[in-house]
Simulated assay, not measured.
Amino acid sequence: MKLTDNVVRNFKVAKIFRENTDRINRIDFSTCGNTLISSSDDDSIVIYDCQNGTPKKTLNSKKYGVDLICYTHAVNTALHGSTKVDDTIRYLSLHDNKYIRYFPGHTKKVVSLNMSPINDSFLSGSLDKTIRLWDLRSQNCQGLMHLPGRPVAAFDPEGLIFAAGINSECVKLYDLRSFDRGPFTTFKLTQDKDCDWTGMKFSPDGKLILISTNGQVLRLIDAFQGTPLQTFMGFQNNKGVALEASFSPDSRFAFCGSTDGRIHCWNTETGVKVAVMNCDHPGPVQCVQFNPRYMMLATACTNMAFWLPYIDD
């Protein structure tokens, strides 16, 4: 099945999970698409089986809390930020719920955590106005950048470059092999007066960058030229929260949640809103991701919802 405007409009909630008692702060699909991992403000990590549509395992991190969870390249390990004790990043074995390694260094809350798509390196950005480059095999930071403001960061799909969004007004692109020499290009964008950038993602085809905010606007820019392509609006965010925005695997659609529990979808080529999808999410939908392998969408507030397309014959 190919993803079209009509298929998107026919997505319906197939299952709702109520495993959590507090906000789900991050979700991440495994590369194979078979499982989804989530972290929540209730200090729990839940792993879901995407093929059977069932919760598979729940782990607790009561001591450190858990935030920004993401899979590494091994499905049995994950990285996450901390909400208690300190701002150390932690590398967890999901098999036995034991920590493999700690990555200390940030002095304020980590707000961005991204695994490289090709190897063991990962990026972290913090409210201490730094971006750090790490390798899973060493607790020592491999690279450090000081920035003038809150950072957001993302790897491109090839894992050769990364983008850093700085001060909610410019995007700098760095070559990973020589990033200590500074950015090889900088895109200056018009600053939004009433919101900050809270997330950034490359499209799976590497041609676009989607910038999400804590306001009522998303920006889509050309990943090579920095040209503004689309501005997506018309969704509710009256609480100033960070709403995740994500691409479909074919890069043709962008999805974002809202504070009224609805999911909005736009066509990335035309900028036209394709669908507004209703679900009984009681709170702001801060996590939205499309499965990389299967025709399935996951959205989360306190509850987790799995969406599938229902096409009439």
Score class of each variant (00 low, 15 high):
H264I: 11
G257D: 03
P249G: 11
S248C: 04
L189I: 09
Q225P: 12
Q216W: 10
H264M: 09
G261D: 05
C265N: 02
D205S: 06
W266V: 08
G257I: 00
L189A: 07
F255V: 05
H264N: 11
M200G: 01
I211F: 05
S248H: 07
D196V: 14
S246M: 07
V241G: 11
E244L: 11
T185W: 03
P249Y: 11
Q236F: 13
N214H: 07
D250M: 02
E244Q: 15
T259K: 12
L208R: 04
G234A: 01
A254D: 03
V241I: 14
G240W: 00
K239L: 15
V217S: 13
F232A: 00
L210T: 01
G234C: 02
F202D: 10
G240E: 04
G199D: 01
S212F: 08
K207A: 15
S246C: 12
T190F: 12
T198N: 07
Q230F: 01
Q191S: 12
A223L: 07
T268C: 09
S258E: 09
S203L: 02
N267L: 06
F255T: 03
K239H: 15
L218R: 02
W266E: 07
A245G: 04
Q225W: 15
A254Y: 08
G206E: 05
F202T: 08
V241N: 11
R252I: 04
N238F: 14
K193P: 02
S212G: 13
G199C: 05
F247H: 02
Q216T: 14
R262A: 15
T268S: 10
Q230N: 09
S246D: 13
F187K: 09
G261V: 07
Q191T: 11
L208W: 00
T186M: 09
R219I: 00
F247E: 00
M233I: 14
G261I: 08
F253G: 07
F184K: 08
S203H: 06
Q191I: 08
D192Q: 11
L220K: 06
I209S: 01
Q236M: 15
R262H: 15
R252W: 08
Q216G: 12
G182S: 08
R252E: 10
N214T: 03
L220C: 05
G226Y: 05
C265F: 04
G215A: 09
A245T: 00
C256I: 10
T259I: 12
L208K: 09
F187E: 08
F202C: 10
V217M: 12
S246N: 13
C256Q: 06
T268D: 06
F187N: 04
I221R: 01
V241W: 12
Q216R: 14
F202E: 10
G240M: 02
K201R: 14
F255S: 01
